[in-house]
Nucleic acid binder design. Sequence first.
RNA 1: GCCGAGGUGGCGAAAUUGGCAACCGCACUAGCCUUAGGAGCUAGCGCUCGCAAGAGUUUGUGGGUUCGAGUCCCACCCUCGGCACCA
Length: 775
Amino acid sequence: MPKYNPQKIEKKWQKYWEAKKLYITKDVVGKKENRMLLTEFAYPSGNLHIGHWYAFSLPDIKARYLRMQGYNVFYPTGFDAFGLPAENAAIKHNIHPETWTRQNIAYMTRQLKSMGTMFDWSRKVSTIDPDYYQWTQWMFVEFYNAGLAYRAVTKVNWCPKDKTVLANEQVVNGKCDRCSSEVLQKDLAQWMFKITDFKDELIDDLTRLDWQETAKLGQINWIGRSEGAKIKFMLEIISGKPSKYFVEVFTTRPDTIFGATFIVISPELAKTWIKNGWKASEEVRGYIAKSLAKRELERQEAKEKTGVDTGVFAVNPASNEKISVWVADYVLGQYGTGAIMAVPTHDQRDREFAEKFHLPISDAPLKDKAQIMALLKNKGAGQDYKTYRLHDWILSRQRYWGVPIPMINCPVCGYMPVAKKELPVKLPPLKDFKPTDDGASPLAKATKWLQVKCPKCAGSAQRETDTMDTFVDSSWYFMRYADPNNTKEFAAKAKMKKWLPVFSYLGGAEHTTMHLLYSRFFIKALHKLGHVDFNEPFLNRRNRGIILGPDNQKMSKSRGNVIDPDGEVKKYGADAVRMYLAFMGPYLHGGSWNPGGITGVYRFLNRVWNFVGLYNSKVKPRAAVLGILNDYIKSIGTHISDLDFNTGVSDLMKLLNELESEQISKKEYETFLKLLAPFAPHIAEELWQNVLKNKTSIHLQAWPMHDSKLIVKEKVFLIVQINGKVRDKIEMAGGISQKQVEEIVLHTPKIKPWLEGKQIKKIIFIPNKLINIVV
RNA sequence: GCCGAGGUGGCGAAAUUGGCAACCGCACUAGCCUUAGGAGCUAGCGCUCGCAAGAGUUUGUGGGUUCGAGUCCCACCCUCGGCACCA
C-alpha cells in the first residue's frame, strides 16, 4: 500500500465522476423523491476563499447523504455575474467587465471543481448570459404591465463614490454597504418594484415556513409593521379661531392620549403645509430649510433635540385641551403620518424635547385602549392604522455592468416596455463604461444602441439607460435550474413542479433582508400573475455561521489572517479541508480556522488509509462491535441531517478508534467507508474501488441500514450516587432489577462507609443507568 | 433603547435533552522509535490538596425548584448579531 497521496487520488476521482456523469441530475429517477438542495450561487470575484468552501463543500455532505438515503438529489450551482464590484475591478485593472467576469468564471469553475462536490455543472446558470437575462427582462415587463414596476421621483440614496443609486437595503448606518462612503439623499426619478403590495403576506406567510427564527425575525423587523392608530387633531391657525384644518398623528399608544401635551410635525410635513398656503413665520421657514438641508446621518446623529414653535394650536380630541404644535426634525417625514402627539411621560424623546423647551408634562392616567379608540372613532377623530418601515425597492442603477431595463421613452407617448418578442435587450459593448457624477447612466453614451423607433407613434425614441440592481438577477435564478435551456419561457411549469419550491436552502445570514426578501417578493408577484404555482420560494432555510481567521477575527487582507484554500488543498487535500471545516463546529455556528487543527483530520485520514489491512473476510466480529457500528449508523445520519457535521466527524473518529483494536470482516469495513463517504468522498471512493475492488461508485450505494432491534447491552456501568454525588460506578449485567442492584450496592466496600450510622430515606433507581441513595 | 443568539478547560468544542461535565480533536508534558523531524507510537492532561489511594471543587454571577441542574424558573452581568430619534 503506497502512502496516502490526496493530490493524486482526488484529481483521479474527480475526472472519473465527471466521465461517468455521476452528478448529472435527471428530473425523474424511478420512484425516488426529488430534493433540490440549494446554496447561494457564487459571485465571480476572481478567487475562492475559505467562505466558499464552507458554503459549498459542507452542504455537499448533506447532499451526498440524502442521495445515499434514496432521494434523487439535485445540487445546482451557477454564477451571479453582473454587478458593481466586477465593474469597479474592471476599471481598476483597465479591462472590460465582461472580459474580467468571464475570466473569473473560468478560473473559479476550475477551483470549484477541485472541491469534489456533487454539483451538476450541466445545469449551470449564469446571470450575464442573454439566454438568462432575457427572462429577467421579461419579468420586469410582466411586473410593469401589472403595475408592480413603476417609475417615480423619490428621495433616493446616492453613493458618491460608486456614482449610483442604492436600495434602502444596501445602506448600512447611512453608508454604502459596498464601499462605505457616506450616502447622500437626492430626489431622482427611479424605477421601482412595488414590494410594499405584499408587505402583509411577506410577514404573515413566514409562519408556515421552516426557517430559522432569527431569519424570520430579521424580515419581520425589516418590514417593520407597527399597529396603532391615526388620530385627528383639529387646528387653530390663529389663536382662538377654530378652522377646517387638522393634523393627523400616528401612534401605537392611543391609550396615552390624555398625556399628550403638544404636537410635533416633521419639517417635511411643515413644508407641504407652506406649499398649501400656510403663512409660517420666518423662524419656522428658516428651521425647515436648515433641517431639510441636513444630511441623513447628521439628522440621525444629532445629540440634542432642536425645533421651533409654529404658533399653531391643536385641540386634543380626547381631553379638548388646547396644545401647541411644534416642528422638529426628530420626527421623520417618511414614517407614519409625519406627525406625532408628544407624550413626555411615556416617551423618552418627547420628554427630552419637553424639558428643553419647557413644555408641559402631564401625568394623566392611562385609559383603556379599546375604550379610547371607541371614543375617538365616535368623534370621527380616530381610526385603526398600521404603518410600515418597508419602502418600495428601487431597482435602477446608473451603472454599466447590469441588465438593461427593457423600456423605451418616447417624447410623445411616454414610457413603454420593449415588446416581449424583442427581448433580450442586449447590453451594448461599450469602451467607455465608467459611471458619471450627474446620475446619467453610462449607457447614454451608446448613441447607436440608444435610438429606437417608438412602437406607437413611429417617432424617434430612446431606450432606458439605467440597468438593474444585481439582486433582481438573483431573485429568480433557482427556478432556472429546473429548466436551464428553455428558450420559450423562464422554466416550464411541469419542470418546476419537479424541483420547486426549493426543499432546502443553506446560505449566509447577510441575505436575510435582501436576497431572501426580494426572492419572496418575486415569487409572490409571479404567483399573482399566474406564472408559478407556489407562492413561497424556499420551504426550509438555514443560515450558516462564518469562518474566522486564526485570531478569531474576520478574515481580511488588511489583518493578514486570510487562509488560502488552494494552499491548504495542496498540503492536505480537499477531503481534509472539507472535513476540517466540518469538524470546527456546528454548521449554523461557524468557527475559526486554526492552522494546527487541520492536521488532526489529516492524521485521521492517514489512519483511515492505513486501516485497510485490518479487515479480514474470514473473521466473525464480536456482537458488541456490530452493536457499536449499528449505533454509529444512526448517530452519524442524524448529525448530518441536523447539519451538526462536527459531531459527525467526531463520531467517525471514535468509530475508527474502536475498530482499530477489533477484528472485523469485509462487510463492516464497507459500512465504515459508506459512513465516511459524504465527508471525504475521494478517499472513500479510492478505498471502495481499489482496495475492495467494487465496480460501481461508493456514492451510488445506499446508506447502511440501522437495525433498531439490534441492542447489544450485555453489560452496563451503573452510576452509584449518595445524595446525588457520584461515589462509585459498578459494571453489571444489563436489565437487572432494583432489588438486585440494591443487594449489590449496599454491600460494596466503597459505598458502605458513606452509609454508616445513617438512615436511608429514599432510593431513586433508573434501570441500566443510576441508583441514588438519599440519607 | 428594542429584538434575537450566546457565555462550559490553554484553544475548537461535546453532553443520549433533567441522570458520570469536559466525548472527539488541537496545543502542551513525559517516554519510545528515528541519522533527522513540523513524521509515527505509548502515557498523562479542568482546577486545588496529595508520592499515591483519594478528597474537595468547577459550566458568566446570585438565588430558586428537584433525590439529582450546563440543561428548568427568577434576577443580574458580559459578548456577538439585527433594528433604531420608527412615535
